[in-house]
Write a protein that binds this DNA or RNA. Structure first.
Lengths: 250, 250
DNA sequence: ACTTCACACATTGGATACACTTTTATATCA
DNA sequence: TGATATAAAAGTGTATCCAATGTGTGAAGT
C-alpha cells in the first residue's frame, strides 16, 4: 500500500463543518476507500449491525456514516431495506462523465492561472506514484491515484467548492468503472497524465482544455454504456400491456 | 404565497435513494425554505430540542435532517456545539459564483440542444411568477423563484447530477445574498430572465453562454465581497499589534 | 404436488436514557 | 469593583430499547 500523505480522495473541505469526531471519520474513511477501491462490489449489502460490531460502535454512529455516504451517492439507502453499495445506472454514468467534462474543462483557466512550479511538482509526484502502482500491477491503487490526480489538479484552481463536487464525481466514477468497465482498461493510459502537467506549465489554456476534454472522453470510452436500463418504474406498465395482449393466461 | 407545483428548489434527484420518510422530508423542506428564503438569518442557532418539539418528533429525526442540511452546506454543525445557519465566508462566496459560472455556462450547449417549446413554456411561466412576485414587492418569493429559474434552466440539459450540484449552489447563493447583499438589489433585474429564453429558443449557443456569464457576473456584483473576513484567528495578533503601538495604556 | 396463508426471524426506524462537553451563572477572593 | 474558580444549566453525542417493516420458511388446504 502506498502512502497517501499529500492527497487523499474524499478528504476535502467536506469534512469541516459537518461535525464528525475522529472515530466516525475513521469509519467513514475506511468504508469510503473500500467502496472506491472496489473491495466492496456495487450492490453489496451493508447491514448496520455487521458494521457496528466490526468497528465496535453502536448502530447510531454507523447510520450517520451511511447517511453521509448516501448523500455522496456512494451507497443507496432504501426505506426499511438498509444500505448497499450504489450501482450507478447508465444514465447516471453518462451524467457523471458529462459533469466532469464541464467542471474539469471549465476550471482549467483558473488552474493555469494559479499553477506554480511547487504545486506542479506535487502533481508530478502523484503521477510518479500512479506509474509505480501501475507498473507493479496494483490496479486498485492505480485507479485511486488516477482519481486523486484529477482532484488535485482542479484543487489548484483554489475553488474548494468545485473541488468538493469533483471529488464526489471522481469517487462515483470508480463505481461506474466497477460496474460497467473491465479493470484492465479502466485506468488511464500510462504516461497520459504527464502531458497535461507540462501543457499547464507552459501556460497553454486552450491546449490544456482540449487535452482534458479528450482525456475524459477516452476514459469514458473504456466503460461500456450501451445497454439500456431495466427501467423498474415501467415494470408495471409493461406487465399490464402484456396482460392486455394475453388476457387469460390459463 | 405562490404555488410551487412545477419547480421546487431542492426537490431534485437528491431525495431518492437516501431513505427519507415523508415526515422527515417535510421537516427538511420546511427548514430548507426557511433558510433559503432568509426567514432564518445566517448564524442563527438551531437547537435540536427546540426543533424536535416544534415538529413533534424526537431529536433523532432532527439530527438526520440537520446532517443533510449540513452536507448541503446550508447549516454548520460543529462538534458538541450544535447546528446553526451557515455564514458563507467571502472566499466561499467567490467560489460559489465561480462554480456557478462554470457549471451554468458549461451546460448551456446541452440545454440548447434539448430545449423544446413545451419546456421553454414552463420556464416562461416561472419567469411570469417571478415578475408577479417582484411587482407585488415580495422579495423573498422573488429571490426564490429567481433561483428556481436558474435550476430549471439547467435541468433542461437532462443532467440530474449537474442539476443537483446547481441546486446546492443556488441555495447557498441565497445565503451569500443574505449575508453580504442588500435585499433590494439582490434579485435579478426585472425582465432579465426573459431574454435568455428567447436566445435559447433561437438556438444561439454562444449567445446564451455569453448572456449567462454576464448575468452571473451582474448578480455577483450586487453583493459586496470587498470586506476581508473577520478572521477570528487573527484577533489575538491584531490586539498584540495594537498593544505594541500603545505599550502601556494606563 | 402446488399454491396460499400465516407465523417467526431478521433488520431497520424512531424514541428514550444516560454520559459528556460547553456555556452560563454564582460565589469567593484579591 | 473586577477577576477567577466553581457549580449549575443547557445542549450535544452515543448507546440501548421498543416498535414497525420486510423477508423467509413452513404448515395447511386444495
Amino acid at each position: 500500500m502506498g502512502k497517501r500523505a499529500s492527497a487523499e480522495l474524499g478528504t476535502g473541505r467536506a469534512d469541516e463543518g459537518l461535525g464528525g469526531n475522529g472515530r466516525d471519520e475513521a469509519i467513514y474513511r475506511n468504508l469510503f476507500v473500500a467502496i472506491v477501491e472496489n473491495h466492496l462490489a456495487p450492490g453489496t449489502k451493508l447491514p448496520e449491525d455487521t458494521l457496528a460490531e466490526t468497528y465496535g460502535v453502536s448502530r447510531t454512529s454507523i447510520r450517520k456514516v451511511l447517511q453521509r455516504l448516501a448523500h455522496e451517492r456512494l451507497v443507496d439507502v432504501r426505506l426499511n431495506r438498509g444500505a448497499s453499495v450504489a450501482q450507478p445506472s447508465v444514465g447516471e454514468a453518462r451524467d457523471i462523465f458529462s459533469a466532469r467534462r464541464i467542471i474539469e474543462c471549465g476550471a482549467i483557466p483558473q488552474v493555469v492561472a494559479k499553477a506554480t512550479p511547487a504545486k506542479l511538482d506535487v502533481l508530478r509526484e502523484l503521477v510518479g506514484r500512479e506509474h509505480a502502482a501501475q507498473d507493479r500491477g496494483d490496479w486498485r491503487e492505480s485507479i485511486y491515484l488516477s482519481g486523486a490526480f484529477h482532484v488535485e489538479l482542479i484543487r489548484l484552481s483554489g475553488n474548494e467548492t468545485l473541488t468538493d463536487f469533483l471529488t464526489q464525481l471522481v469517487s462515483r466514477s470508480s463505481l461506474v468503472i466497477a460496474t460497467y468497465g473491465s479493470p484492465q482498461t479502466a485506468s488511464c493510459r500510462h504516461s497520459e497524465h504527464d502531458d497535461v502537467i507540462e501543457i499547464i506549465a507552459g501556460g497553454d489554456v486552450d491546449g490544456a482544455t482540449r487535452w482534458m476534454d479528450r482525456h475524459l472522453r477516452d476514459v469514458e470510452r473504456t466503460v461500456v454504456l450501451v445497454e439500456e436500463e431495466p427501467a423498474p418504474a415501467d415494470l408495471k406498465k409493461i406487465l399490464e400491456e402484456v396482460a392486455q395482449r394475453r388476457p387469460k393466461l390459463r
